[in-house]
Design a binder for these strands. Structure first.
Length: 907
DNA sequence: CTAGGGATATTA
DNA sequence: TAATATCCCTAG
């Protein structure tokens, strides 16, 4: 018994839940982030049992026995299993009583009273398993979330304990996730699956929570009562309980009541789902459901401080939004789609962008989008049926949220219609909670397969350095695990923190922005082969994120920041976007939808162009060839090309950029390694080393093949290559590169009257860019510095509209940026102009509407020529000042700073 | 709250 | 005593 409730008796103070106690008195943890659902962990102890979930367990041990044990009986744990040997302090009392015991010795300096140490309590396999599951659900590093998740029970463990356990038991994984750690390193490998992939992948937790019938009823009722004022409707407790956002309602409404939706003046989504509805989700159901139900509440947010902060903005009302990082905030990527299918008439996807994009075949796209998304999400998970997303609420654009009302003014056209893109979510993965299961399913079963769980528990011989492939990383410590998954988790997990973008964006932004959109934008529906995606999925996510992020930024930012794109104040455009109190609009204003930034962005950005595609493909190919690893992971070129490529490419590029440029300040190694390695594996080196070939990269994510030996990687692995990683966000880059000029803006404004024009121009520019990259266009990269990064970014951000400048601009850097900005502004203006409505609209409205407000501001700023904002982003980063790209490059070598790593990024 | 490093308790 | 597993502390 002992166990569970150790706290009670145990020591006076501690025990209980350790997590809280010990540490910082911190305020309620949950408050912000997590949501409700979980509350604090309940006492593990209590048998109330949190109801042990079923999750699959990964059985650590193999064998038989226990395996799953899901049951709870926490108690057992104590006893243990493990070796039987020790029990350290007796368990029994261990916990509790007498704490006295030995502990004291520690010297508890202070009083013997409280401060005694808590008795050592050995970790049981069950706990360990929970930890693993928790990491997969919440992400490595989200100890508290894991601890609080009723799904997992730990006996009196504190978050730190979880961390320590993770560190000690999965040193290999720890190193991957915590590249900065210099101590407590062990060579043991336990986190690798037979296939070399890591156990800890997943991370993302959110899942999609399909709307229930009740919700649909409430939605309908709300609509009847309040019209399309989703913000009002969402106040219904039922939605609150589900943590639905107003945008979620809109999205759902669109899917569930297409006719009404259309009647309301919104642009109807083609529901025609071309694609299949999607399979049932056998597996998912279980997981999802469970998750959904249970987890719904908690949103996990990771905090990846890193750069992201910059981005933060006020997206949502809540702090959560803050990071780009994850989830919910912004949208729901989290939720995975899941089940939605049932009711929704069509699970139609929602792509809003369709509107934006002018593309004729919206419907298709949508579908596509979904597919993509799912794929993306899936990424790691091969089998997975991709879920569709439609239902989920996707986006969540806060900004738009309230606002959506349909208005079709011509002016808004794009924007308006687009209003909110819904994007979706990416997270298919979520469904799979337990990595193990997943893996098992897909691949080798742990229990059965060659590798028994036991194997991994014990150090894996295979992994050992001796073996070339998989082991390689072990020895070196390179990233390792080959499987595509590995990457994935890297991203998600702690690493995320390191990676700004990837992590964060994917989730949050993507979702909000409408990753789906992105996809749609980029890809053609047909293009994708779902199957192919798998590996990349997550890449795509990133890509999407990136891309879209960029876009997002633009619009939003542009507005706020004005010409410069300064991310400065707001951080990401998101913030800016959201910034406008979402709430305002909705209720008061029913005005048509705000032009979602997304939309605009999309519009501007779309990669669709055939031209672009080509380049992308090329890129992809290379990348693929190089890195590919597992079949799954490997993408078909076409696929990538189709939708993901761009994104991926971008991502990597970005990532590269980031790393290169930014790194120094940030943590040293951090994900950088991973990336590096990947990159290298992928053959990407070029970037790092050169500047040039940015294009290549994409493949990387999956790069890890277990199989693929990556000689280089090993070599590389050492910090040397790319140092740090901490990337700054695009934003950061932007600022750097972008000149503050404003001049261009004005000019730009003139340039594109029409969004369409802009769009076109943008596209064109984008294409060019890609081409360059693909081509390895030397020019682009500009040997100079890391500028190349910019270019990519530029693509997104800038329009090429102005002209020729665009393409060159990319190469060039700053100068172009201005131009681009200008264009961006132009867009804004154009919108504004076009949409006279805006002007007509009450100021308040305008304010509400992110775009407008931002645009206006931007314009004004431009006029004024405030360049300052541009810098701001950097400012955000604390310690790190902006680093010049070159510097970064140079710096690579030293990564190390201790904690500093985060500094820069972090708060 | 978490990362990262240190200290101490256990084991081998 | 070396190696390891937990516990602890502290910076951010």
């Amino acid at each position: 018994m002992a166990a569970n409730i150790p706290s009670t008796s145990s020591q006076p103070y501690t025990t209980t839940f350790s997590f809280t106690a010990p540490f910082p008195p911190s305020p309620a943890p949950s408050a912000q982030a997590q949501s409700l659902a979980k509350q604090r962990r309940v006492s593990l102890a209590l048998p109330s049992d949190s109801s042990p979930r079923i999750f699959p367990a990964w059985s650590f041990r193999d064998d038989t026995g226990l395996g799953v044990h899901s049951a709870d009986s926490p108690q057992d744990d104590d006893v243990e299993k493990k070796g039987g040997k020790m029990r350290k302090i007796d368990d029994a009392d261990g916990d509790v009583h007498s704490c006295a015991q030995p502990l004291l010795q520690g010297g508890a300096p202070t009083n013997p009273d409280k401060p005694e140490k808590k008795p050592r309590k050995k970790w049981t396999m069950e706990e360990t398993q929970m930890l693993v599951s928790g990491c997969n659900k919440w992400g490595v590093g989200n100890w508290k979330s894991i601890l609080n998740d009723p799904e997992f029970k730990f006996d009196g463990r504190s978050p730190v304990d979880l961390k320590d356990r993770f560190r000690t038991y999965y040193p290999d994984a720890y190193r991957q996730h915590y590249p900065n750690a210099k101590t407590h390193l062990s060579s043991k490998v336990r986190s690798a699956l037979p296939d070399g992939s890591s156990i800890f992948e997943k991370t993302r937790s959110k899942k999609r929570r399909p709307f229930t019938e009740e919700e649909d009823r409430a939605l309908k009722a709300g609509y009847d009562k309040h019209g399309t004022v989703w913000a009002t409707i969402v106040k219904d407790p039922i939605f609150q309980a589900q943590n639905r956002r107003s945008t979620d309602l809109r999205d759902r409404f669109r899917n569930a009541f297409p006719d009404l939706y259309q009647a309301a003046g919104y642009k109807p989504r083609n529901t025609t789902k071309k694609k299949r509805d999607i399979p049932s989700h056998p597996m998912r159901a279980a997981t999802d459901d469970s998750l959904a139900s249970s987890s719904a509440g908690p949103v996990r947010r990771k905090r990846r401080h890193t750069d992201q902060e910059l981005f933060r903005g006020g997206t949502k009302s809540v702090p959560e939004s803050a990071n780009v990082s994850e989830d919910e905030d912004s949208s729901d990527e989290e939720d995975s789609a899941a089940p939605f299918v049932k009711d929704a008439p069509a699970a139609t996807p929602q792509s809003t962008h369709d509107d934006m994009i002018m593309s004729p075949d919206e419907g298709t796209k949508e579908i596509e989008m979904q597919t993509l998304d799912s794929l993306n999400d899936t990424l790691s998970i091969p089998d997975f049926p991709s879920s569709s997303l439609s239902e989920m609420t996707d986006s969540s654009q806060n900004w738009s949220s309230g606002i959506d009302t349909p208005i079709h003014s011509s002016a808004w056209s794009t924007a308006t219609n687009a209003a909110s893109p819904t994007s979706s979510h990416l997270s298919v993965t979520d469904y799979f909670n337990s990595p193990f299961q997943r893996r098992n399913e897909s691949g080798p079963m742990i229990g059965k397969s060659a590798w028994g769980p036991q194997d991994w528990l014990s150090a894996n011989p295979r992994l050992e350095p001796s073996s070339s492939s998989s082991s390689s990383y072990i020895g070196n410590f390179s990233p390792a695990p080959s499987s595509p998954f590995s990457f994935a988790h890297l991203n998600h997990g702690v690493l995320d923190r390191y990676d700004l973008f990837p992590t964060s964006f994917p989730h949050d932004f993507a979702s909000e922005v409408g990753v789906g959109d992105t996809h749609s934008t980029f890809s053609d529906p047909e293009m994708f082969a779902p199957s192919s995606f798998r590996g990349f999925t997550h890449h795509s996510n990133y890509a999407g994120d990136l891309i879209f992020g960029a876009r997002t930024h633009q619009p939003q930012q542009s507005a706020d920041y004005g010409p410069g794109f300064g991310f400065g104040s707001a951080g990401l455009g998101l913030s800016g976007i959201q910034a406008p109190p979402s709430g305002n609009l909705h209720s008061a204003v029913r005005t048509p939808a705000l032009p979602g930034i997304d939309e605009i962005e999309l519009t501007s950005i779309t990669l669709d162009d055939p031209d672009v595609a080509v380049p992308m493909e090329e890129t992809v190919d290379t990348a693929v060839a190089k890195d590919t690893t597992s079949p799954d992971s490997s993408l078909s070129l076409s696929d990538l090309t189709t939708f993901s490529l761009p994104p991926q490419t971008l991502e990597e590029i970005i990532g590269l950029t980031q790393e290169i440029h930014v790194t120094p300040p940030g943590t040293p190694q951090t994900h950088g390694h991973d990336r590096m390695t990947r990159m290298q594996q992928a053959g990407v080196h070029t970037l790092s080393s050169h500047n040039r070939s940015i294009s290549v990269p994409p493949s990387e994510h999956r790069a890890y093949d277990p199989h693929a030996p990556v000689p280089q990687s090993q070599q590389i692995r050492p910090k040397s290559l790319v140092p740090p990683t901490r990337s700054m966000s695009l934003m950061d880059y932007m600022p750097l590169h972008t000149p503050t000029d404003q001049q261009g803006h004005a000019n730009a404004a003139g340039t594109s009257p029409d969004t369409g024009g802009v769009f076109t121009s943008l596209t064109g520019s984008a294409n060019e860019l890609w081409k360059h990259f693909n081509g390895g266009a030397p020019s682009i990269p500009g040997a100079d510095n890391g500028n190349y990064d910019l270019p990519f970014l530029d693509l997104h951000y800038y329009n090429g509209a102005q002209g020729g400048a665009a393409s060159p601009g990319l190469a060039t850097e700053h100068g172009n940026a201005d131009a681009n900005q200008a264009q961006a502004l132009d867009l804004a203006q154009s919108f504004a102009l076009q949409s006279k409505t805006l002007s007509q609209l009450p100021p308040t409205l305008a304010q509400h509407i992110p775009m407008f407000a931002s645009w206006q501001n931007a314009l004004s700023e431009v006029a004024q020529g405030s360049s300052s904002r541009m810098m701001s982003p950097h400012a955000h980063q604390r310690g790190q000042s902006v680093v010049s790209p070159q510097d970064l490059l140079l710096t690579k070598g030293d990564n190390k700073r201790k904690r500093s790593s985060w500094d820069g990024a972090a708060l």
